[in-house]
Amino acid sequence: MWKTARIGGLAALATILALAPLGFPNAYFYDVAVKALFNAVVCVGLNLLIGYAGQISLGHAGFFALGAYGSAILTSTYKVAPLPAMLISAAAVGLLAYLVGRPILKLKGHYLAMATLGIGIIIHIVLKTEARITGGPDGMSVDPFSLMGFTMMGDRMWYWAAAGLLVLTVWLSLNLIDSPVGRALRAVHGSEVGAEVVGVDTSSYKVMVFVVSAVFASLVGSLFAHKDGFITPDIGSFFRSVEFVVMVVLGGMASTFGSVIGAVILTLLPQVLTFVEDYEAMVLGGIMMGMMIFLPKGLLPAVVSQFRKRGAAR
């Protein structure tokens, strides 16, 4: 039952991604779609941490920015090819996440939120201050992504790459959740002490998920840098971290497809809301509050339970 739902979900996602471009009249639509998909990949990773392991992070934009700057600096200053640069950055971010994750994941709830927030902000400050390497607050240029003589140009090409990446990420995430690791994680979320009593090494599982989600963020950060061609330290700001968390929670915690939906909605909203002009912030804040008040479990779980109810009634 669970298996078929999973395959069905993946197939549905792939179909939607394949058909969506039929509704895209120009490159701008592709650009927005790519950004939505990038955010979705980060959120699927972050959801493993927030939704399944029950640990919050208000610093993931920092890892995203490190991936972006890692790629930017390695490719432009040290002339490393984009793919190895991306992998080196991701490995470094993974190591960093491991080193900071071990002590801070012992913290709970709001204290963990504070610690991750602090790490994100420290990364942001370093990127802003070390102007000789990073170009400072005004940012730096990044070369396009190329692999074996083939250069990624244009939003259409990026769309297919991002779509492929998302399907892969979702597949990985679903498999991870369904593995013994996933079950251990859910045990950690349910009751950490309880999980420990029955022999789950909770802290190492928590650190592992933290590292995995940070690496996802870093990889997407690298791709984003190559795609936009210009980055500033603000991509690692506190607001971006909060934005990622909001996407995960809005779509539905502990729901991989929910994270995708949350990311897509929150990326599209500012584009849709341009017509309200000065009232944009009010409408955006209002939508966030309303959704969380009326759908406290998030959008997708609410839809699914509605669906189930209808089905049961029949």
Binding site: D31, K35, G139, D228, F230
Partner: peptide, 11 residues
């Protein structure tokens, strides 16, 4: 935000 500027310039 520069990335928003990129999207809006495209738009």
């Amino acid at each position: 935000a520069p990335d928003k500027a990129v999207t809006f310039a495209k738009r």
